[in-house]
Design a protein around this nucleic acid. Structure first.
Lengths: 266, 266
DNA sequence: GCAACGGTTACGCGGCGTCATTGTCT
DNA sequence: TAGACAATGACGCCGCGTAACCGTTG
């Protein structure tokens, strides 16, 4: 009563290619029930339609073929806890996939809307991106100011630079920006990346800037471009209900600035 | 003022590997601003941090590197219509990704719940799957019956088989099942796949079973297993708010049955 | 003898990661 | 001179598709 099929017929019944079946055979994922010793023709049974269907379903769930193999080989000998773990892992994968597609989708939609609304002022599909930024050790100097005064920041930077032995200075420099709560006071904190051998002195603060997930954008190194970038990053964050997880970081790369807004919850 | 970086430093600033940068160079995606003629060292500029950031953002959107190249090469010379088309294409990709992950996610959640609720009766993560099934030409015989009577179906099948010249019969046979609306009358319609040369006769009906998207499941060829399978397919459909788009198809493969429920709206 | 199947091996795709080997900088 | 960095090139990964070439079936 159990039917036997050759590879082509079996493939068509199952809705896959015979190439796929040969591939699964080699991987040990779905072995033919028999192989003709002389012709080496593969022979599949009707019961294997169900096996294959399971395999295809698991593939749809995003499992790799080796993962599927280890799953189907132990079916029945798997504890409920194991199954549950597997399902939860699959769930995680799927959710990650969905998330990493949903976020860009809102970006694209926003871009489509912006293009319609103010069709001239649109420079690219996504100018703000989310990225993980590594931590670094920095030396910094802090000052409060009422609003942004470039000269003050430049003066601070120079002070800091003269206090730092140049052999300890790394490649990155920038400014940390904070706002004192319940006031308009701005705290500017120019910094230089330093290596770990730098001695602790009272002229400057020595701290570890932690690694963060940050909203990041690049702009030209001038006040106008920078303020545009800050605006863009703020509206990007508010559109996503994300909140600031530390002082904003303004990194200077010659004629380019990178503005980073550390995010909470990642 | 514009800074120059060698590949390693630039890679670290941008958060990618130097391998990636060399790859992008070869693809013409991000050319170094200069290459030392003697050493062939690549040299990147600070302004390229922004370019690269755009490239990475587009990559996150699921574009291929050649697509990104054609995009960045024509930035500014692109019409609004072109941009809009591109964005809409991206949107489609993303939505497809989301959909093809969301459906399985509900499957997995259902499986997790089932496992909790009735932890013994669960046989696999997904026993019902959705698949596209090709159409075929069939010859069939129809009969109404009050409820399922196996003997009647078998008799019908035999009648049909004796009426069919065997050289026209294909590999697939089965039964179509329908329920007459507003009554419990069941319509059983055994069929055999036939090739196109079969002449039209009054002994049997000749029809084209259309290709469909169907909920499909396999079970052993016995009444108990089949009724379980029908139950499973019904609850699978109702859980997804899907409705039947034609008679159910019961395909016979020796000791296995495949139960298919054609779905509307695909 | 011919078409339609089956077999195997080898290469391609995308987006890099991972050597291995050689050259360059400090 | 050492050791970090640069260059190039070859191969690996995944899940097959495609092609080439040859044997089997009906």
């Amino acid at each position: 009563m159990a039917m036997q099929y050759r590879i082509g017929e079996f493939a068509e019944l199952a809705g896959v290619s015979s190439k796929t079946l040969r591939h699964y055979d080699r991987l040990g994922l779905l072995r033919p029930v028999a192989v003709d010793a002389r012709t080496r023709y593969r022979c599949y049974s009707s019961a294997q339609l169900r096996e294959l269907s399971t395999i295809l379903a698991l593939r749809e769930l995003g499992l790799s073929l080796p993962q599927i193999r280890s799953f189907v080989q132990r079916t029945g000998r798997m504890s409920h806890a194991d199954r549950r773990t597997l399902l939860l892992r699959i769930r995680q994968n799927l959710q990650h996939t969905i998330q990493s597609a949903t976020r860009p989708l809102t970006d694209v939609d926003a871009a489509l809307n912006r293009e319609i609304d103010i069709s001239g002022a649109w420079t690219g599909p996504v100018s703000v991106v989310m990225r993980r930024r590594p931590g670094m050790r920095i030396a910094s100097l802090r000052a409060e100011m009422e609003g942004y005064v470039e000269a003050d920041v430049v003066r601070l930077e120079r002070e800091l630079l003269t206090a730092l032995p140049s052999e300890f200075i790394g490649a990155i420099r920038g400014v940390l920006w904070q706002r004192r709560p319940d006031s308009d006071t701005l705290i500017a904190e120019p910094f230089f990346e330093v290596n770990h051998a730098l001695p602790r002195r009272s002229f400057y603060e020595l701290k570890d800037l932690p690694p963060v997930m940050a909203a990041s954008t690049y702009c030209d190194n001038d006040d106008y471009a920078a303020s545009e970038a800050y605006q863009a990053i703020n509206s990007w964050m508010s559109a996503r209900d994300l909140s600031l997880g530390g002082p904003k970081r303004e990194l200077c790369f010659g004629d380019m600035l990178e503005i980073q807004a550390p995010l909470t919850g990642f």
